[in-house]
Design a protein around this nucleic acid. Structure first.
Length: 158
DNA sequence: GCCAACGTTGGC
DNA sequence: GCCAACGTTGGC
């Protein structure tokens, strides 16, 4: 990390289906390339917004108890998602080439598992969090920014 | 499994 | 560039 890149840490929330990849999987592997993001807005957050050292809420989606399950940290700047070039991958994108990659990812490293899942239902109950992107009706983004205020507020709930 | 919300695709 | 059809996400 160079001085030119220095800036206060930014905060993010990243969704994963625990059946596919859970906070326990990240704990075991310690680090993971966050592949498979195929949404331009989510890609742009990773490519343009994330820097190593940024903090991440690891969110379990599409499961019995949706909510924030742990903390992670951005470990790299964005680079091309290799799965877009792999015809055998379900994330293969015939419109992408190595010259002109379409999809980017960052590596994420494990920080900690929270003592309990802070559930979506619980988050919805806090008026202070009403403006969170996560809680906006119809939101489907899998990568989204979190304000410093919301980050601190949620951490205090754990 | 249902379905609302939203993004993407493709015909015109 | 419009917009209907289609696919996906993700809570419930």
């Amino acid at each position: 990390m160079t001085a030119a890149h220095s800036r206060p840490a930014h905060y993010w929330l990243m969704k994963s289906e625990p059946d596919a990849f859970s906070i326990d999987d990240l704990k075991r592997k310690k680090r993971e390339a966050w592949d498979g993001v195929r949404n331009y807005q989510a890609r742009n957050f990773m490519r343009d917004g994330m820097r190593p050292g940024d903090r991440v809420f690891f969110y379990h989606s599409n499961c019995a108890e949706p909510g924030i399950a742990g903390l992670a940290e951005v470990a790299t700047d964005a680079y091309p998602d290799p799965s877009q070039f792999d015809p055998a991958s379900k994330y293969f994108d015939p419109g992408a080439s190595r010259d002109k990659p379409r999809w980017m990812l960052v590596d994420v490293k494990f920080v900690k598992k929270l003592p309990r899942v802070i559930t979506l239902d619980e988050l919805k109950g806090h008026a202070a969090l009403a403006e969170m992107a996560l809680l906006r009706k119809g939101n489907r983004l899998s990568v989204m920014p979190v304000s410093a205020e919301h980050w601190a507020y949620i951490l205090a709930l754990a």
